[in-house]
Amino acid sequence: MLRISCPWCGTRDELEFTFGGESHVTRPTPDASDDVWSDYLFNKENPKGVHYESWMHRYGCGRWFNVARDTVTHEIYAVYPMGEAKPDLGETDRE
């Protein structure tokens, strides 16, 4: 059971949240090539280590926020607002 700290409501069980997948994915411009669009739409970072991802507090405030979470230990290193840059976590990548 993940325990996630919603920036607005406090720490709750994962059951209250909806997972939104990888964060910090930038939408290409309309004139981008098929390769770029395909990469944007389908390809994932999917790291073994820290994953920068979005969650939504569905059964709470209903707001989205970002989480930096380890995909091996499930440890949550940081919770930060949408639109903010990735926090610097130092050397945590397992790959």
Binding site: F19, G21, K48, H51, E53, T71, V72
Partner: peptide
């Protein structure tokens, strides 16, 4: 599945 990224 547990619907979030994991290698655990």
């Amino acid at each position: 599945a547990d619907v979030y990224n994991s290698y655990a």
